[in-house]
């Protein structure tokens, strides 16, 4: 289990602080003015207290239903295991978010299987699409018909829960040759409008499939117009950005914004630059479940800080 405690006040006082958690190694490091410093980890007791006084929500990502290659011939089974972990959580989450790549090939049967398994939690689920969810004949129509009833454009929307403003963004459509993920002018205009009425003290959670910061441009792991979205989020005291796509945990704190990517429930991908290309990574039997997992996020009442707690499928 990897835990990260984001102390909003401490971070805003520091200049250009960054921290990252690398999946598999469990190493947490920060850089402040070029000097690595360790961050406080959220203790189990603190996590429990946060859950008692606030609420939690659950993030799953990259379930890739339909994937059956060597890296995980049974992606459907590992999603079932992940959902089993959600059901077994001591504190019931208020809802779930799924940060995309629900399916592998946008097929109706794959969406059906995902819905049936994820629906087993009985929780509300807020989805955003991954690029694998918009490759049906209609270039995303299947996704919108299923999940986009209350959404705008290609499937973006916002909602409020216990004083936290949540924004689901879509950065996997209309991709440009040579580019990265893309939000587009229409969505950015909507975002500016959506945030206008939200007070600066309201905690914001933004979620989208592809990371909204550049993790590794050579592999397309970033969003080309994310700086415009992040500029709109600058005035808020606490912003948490949750992404998927890269199938590993990566975290960065910059000013008021904490970026975090979740593990997949289907298959791992290599760490940036450690392989000729991204894509499904086949690991020795017995290691797969230590590289797959779910993410639990605790929000304290009246507090700005969110605790992000990743757990592996292999965790007891």
């Amino acid at each position: 289990m990897t835990q990260h405690h984001d102390d909003g006040e401490g971070i805003s006082r520091r200049h250009a602080l960054e921290c990252m958690i690398w999946a598999g190694t469990g190493v947490l490091w920060t850089v402040s003015g070029g000097v690595p410093v360790s961050l406080n980890l959220l203790g189990a007791a603190e996590a429990a207290e946060a859950q008692a006084s606030g609420f939690t929500f659950l993030q799953i990502s990259d379930s890739h239903i339909g994937f059956d290659k060597a890296a995980n011939p049974h992606a459907i089974d590992t999603l079932k295991e992940a959902i089993g972990k959600v059901k077994a959580l001591p504190a019931k989450p208020a809802f779930m978010i799924h940060t995309g790549d629900i399916t592998h090939l946008s097929k109706a049967a794959q969406f059906d299987n995902a819905d049936q398994i994820i629906g087993g939690t009985g929780l509300d689920v807020h989805y955003v699409p991954g690029e694998h969810d918009v490759i049906d004949e209609g270039n995303g129509r299947a996704y919108i018909e299923r999940y986009g009833k209350n959404a705008k454009g290609a499937g973006w929307y916002s909602f409020d829960q216990n004083g936290v403003h949540f924004v689901g963004l879509v950065n996997v459509v209309n991709l440009r040759a040579g580019g990265l993920g893309n939000l587009g002018a229409e969505q950015l205009a909507w975002l500016a409008d959506d945030l206008r009425a939200v007070s600066a003290s309201t905690p914001i959670v933004v979620f989208a499939h592809i990371p909204l910061w550049t993790v590794y441009a050579d592999w397309g792991w970033g969003t080309e117009d994310s700086t415009q979205a992040l500029a709109l989020l600058k005035r808020f005291g606490s912003v948490t950005v949750l992404n998927g796509h890269i199938h590993q945990i990566m975290q960065k704190v910059e000013g008021n914004i904490t970026f975090h990517t979740a593990r997949s429930t289907a298959f791992p991908q290599p760490a940036p630059g450690t392989a000729p290309a991204p894509g499904p990574m086949t690991v020795p039997a017995g290691q797969l479940r230590s590289l797959l997992g779910i993410t639990d996020v605790a929000v304290r009442n009246g507090g700005q800080e969110l605790a992000i707690i990743d757990s592996r499928l292999s965790d007891a």
Partner: peptide
């Protein structure tokens, strides 16, 4: 010139 619609890099 062409590109991948899923991985435009």
């Amino acid at each position: 010139a062409y590109f991948c619609g899923l991985h435009p890099h």
